[in-house]
Design a protein around this nucleic acid. Structure first.
Length: 269
DNA sequence: CATTGTCCCTGGAAGC
DNA sequence: TGCTTCCAGGGACAAT
């Protein structure tokens, strides 16, 4: 599932290949992903535009065009493949570039979305702090946690609180900080807040270095899997042995999301 | 505003 | 073997 490290990897790998290229054709095999305009208007907006840049904001990809932007969210099973040679059974939208390259948006479960807009403001405005930016300080983190009495796991998944963390990396960060996922956010000690702040940054950076995690269908644009999931200690490891204490990893539901943690290492009290 | 529950979506796994 | 049921979870949305 694409979270911040996966989307960052896609951005890093795609940008040098498509920068300065012009979109010459767009094939819509399935119009479900297209939002906020008709498929016809979507095509008209994109064809002829040059790709000037590519940014990530939270889990969103922002393609900067010669005029306006293309915004893509991959949700659960979306991938962007460059010149895919695979039999693309799940190809939804195909972008053809002026150098012959193609970008294929492929999405097994059809939950991914994309739309064109004048700028990225509508996305930026609703998203919280970027965890890998200078704005993400212990002080600001602590300040904002004070008004949250929900479980810390739920708060980490709130994109308006902090942008880009999803289920996998929230579980990993909480384990590294030894915090129970049900711990109330405004009940964390300063020591725990510092640990969690550090854990979020190190977990995300390590995952980017490993080109993301391929737990489900995730692939980078060259079709390869990431390796970040090989280093997961608790995420998606129910009934596996905790690498720290040898106990069993448990899984509970928090806000309808499976939360993996070590009951022995991550105490609630 | 903060919080929580429901819905979308479908292939693969699990169960019978 | 083949059918049915369940499961995964990001984010929009509504309700409280």
């Amino acid at each position: 599932m694409p979270e911040l490290p996966e989307v960052e990897t896609i951005k890093n790998e795609l940008l040098p290949e498509i920068s300065g290229r012009r979109i010459v054709r767009v094939e819509i095999k399935d119009d479900k992903p297209i939002r906020k305009s008709s498929p016809k208007e979507f095509l008209k907006y994109l064809v002829g535009k040059e790709i000037k840049g590519l940014d990530r904001r939270g889990k969103y990809l922002i393609f900067h065009l010669s005029k306006g932007v293309l915004i893509i969210h991959l949700r659960m099973t979306g991938v962007l493949l460059l010149n895919s040679q695979e039999n693309e059974r799940f190809a939804r939208i195909v972008f053809k570039l002026d150098d012959g390259n193609t970008i294929v948006f492929s999405d097994r479960r059809r939950l991914g979305v994309m739309w064109v807009a004048e700028n990225e403001e509508e996305v930026s405005i609703k998203l919280g702090t970027e965890p890998l930016s200078k704005e993400f300080t212990v002080e600001a983190f602590k300040q904002r946690l004070q008004s949250r009495k929900a479980p810390i796991k739920a708060v980490l998944l709130d994109q308006s609180f902090i942008a880009g963390i999803g289920n996998m990396y929230a579980d990993e960060a909480l384990f590294q900080a030894r915090i129970h996922p049900l711990k109330k956010a405004n009940d964390l000690s300063l020591v725990k807040i510092r640990k969690l702040h550090r854990a979020i940054i190190t977990i995300l950076k390590a995952a980017i270095k490993n080109k993301g995690a391929s737990i489900d269908t995730y692939r980078s644009p060259d079709g390869r899997q990431g390796t970040a999931h090989n280093e997961f200690k608790v995420a998606h490891r129910k009934n596996c042995v905790c690498p720290e204490c040898g106990g069993l990893i448990d899984r509970i539901m928090i806000r309808n999301r499976g939360s993996y943690f070590c009951p022995a290492c991550q105490k609630l009290s």
